[in-house]
C-alpha cells in the first residue's frame, strides 16, 4: 500500500521523468565519446532487439495464459465445496511461494522436447516451456488477486442481487466481476512487471532472449567496455518496459483509493 501525498514536489516529478531518459542518454553519450564502441554496439543492436522481442513475447503469452487460468482458479477458490477448494488453495500456496527460476527449470526439464499428436511429431520449443513456467506463478498470483477482489465486494450486494432474481453465476458475471476488474487492475500490473522481469530467467535454460543475446555478444566481441555497455543496454531495455508499468500502477492505485 502506498501512502498518498497530496501534492508531489516538482523536483521529484522532474527526477522521475529524468529516470526514463537517463540510461539511454548515458549509453548514447558513451557511444559518441568512443566511436569504435558505438559502431560495435550498432552492429549488435538488431541481435539484441531480436532477443528483447522474445522477452516481450514470453511475457505476453505467460500473462494471457496466467490470467485466464488464474481468474478461473480465483473464482473456484470461493466455491462452497471443500473438495474443489482444497486442491486449488494448495496449488496457489505452493506456486506463489516457489521461485520463478525453479518453475522454469521444472517445465524445461520435465516436459519432452517434442510431442506426438496423431502420429505427428511436433517440436516443443524451449520458449514455450518458459511461457508455461512463468504462467504457473502468474496464475497463482492472479488467483489470489481475483479472490481478494471478489471478497472485497460487500456481501450485501450478493444478497441484493439474489433479491432481484439473479442466480449466483449471473450475479458474479453482471454485478461482482465488473467491480473486481477495477480493483484488481493495479495488483495485476504488479504481476505483469514481475513476470516481465522474470522472462530474463529463461536465458538460464538457453532461450534466445535479451540477456542471452547480450552474453553472446559480449563473448563474441571480447572487450570489457562492450560487455559493460551491452549489459547497460539490457538494463535500459527492461527499465523502459517496466518503469512506465510501475508509474501507471501507482497512478491507478492513487485514483482508485477510496476517499
Amino acid at each position: 500500500m502506498t501512502v498518498v501525498t497530496a501534492q508531489r514536489p516538482a523536483g521529484r516529478r522532474v527526477l522521475r521523468n529524468i529516470g526514463l531518459v537517463a540510461l539511454p542518454a548515458a549509453i548514447l553519450a558513451w557511444c559518441l565519446t568512443d566511436l569504435s564502441l558505438g559502431r560495435e554496439l550498432m552492429q549488435w543492436l538488431p541481435y539484441l532487439a531480436s532477443g528483447f522481442a522474445m522477452n516481450i513475447l514470453i511475457s505476453l503469452c505467460a500473462m494471457v495464459l496466467g490470467t485466464a487460468v488464474g481468474c478461473a482458479l480465483g473464482i473456484l477458490q470461493l466455491v462452497p465445496y471443500r473438495l474443489v477448494r482444497a486442491p486449488i488453495v494448495s496449488y496457489v500456496q505452493i506456486f506463489r511461494n516457489a521461485p520463478h527460476l525453479v518453475l522454469i527449470f521444472a517445465t524445461t526439464y520435465i516436459f519432452p522436447f517434442e510431442i506426438v499428436i496423431f502420429g505427428n511429431y511436433i517440436a516443443f520449443p524451449d520458449w514455450v516451456k518458459a511461457v508455461i513456467g512463468l504462467a504457473i506463478p502468474a496464475s497463482a498470483y492472479v488467483a489470489e488477486i481475483t479472490r481478494g477482489a471478489i471478497q472485497s465486494i460487500p456481501t450485501a450486494q450478493w444478497e441484493a442481487a439474489t433479491g432481484l432474481g439473479f442466480s449466483r453465476v449471473q450475479a458474479l458475471r453482471w454485478i461482482i466481476l465488473p467491480q473486481c476488474l477495477r480493483r484488481s487492475l493495479p495488483p495485476w500490473m504488479n504481476v505483469l512487471a514481475s513476470i516481465t522481469m522474470g522472462t530474463s530467467l529463461a536465458s538460464l535454460v538457453g532461450v534466445h532472449e535479451l540477456l542471452h543475446a547480450a552474453t553472446d555478444a559480449s563473448t563474441a566481441v571480447r572487450r570489457l567496455d562492450f560487455t559493460v555497455i551491452a549489459y547497460v543496454v539490457v538494463m535500459a531495455a527492461f527499465f523502459a518496459l517496466c518503469y512506465p508499468i510501475g508509474r501507471l500502477t501507482r497512478r491507478l492505485e492513487r485514483r482508485f483509493l477510496p476517499g
Binding site: Y231, M235, F239, C242
Partner: peptide
C-alpha cells in the same frame, strides 16, 4: 533502477 530491472541482469552485470 533496481526495482525496474531483473535481478538476474543486475547480477550478470555485477559479476561480468
Amino acid at each position: 533502477i533496481t526495482r525496474n530491472t531483473p535481478t538476474l541482469v543486475q547480477l550478470m552485470f555485477s559479476f561480468l
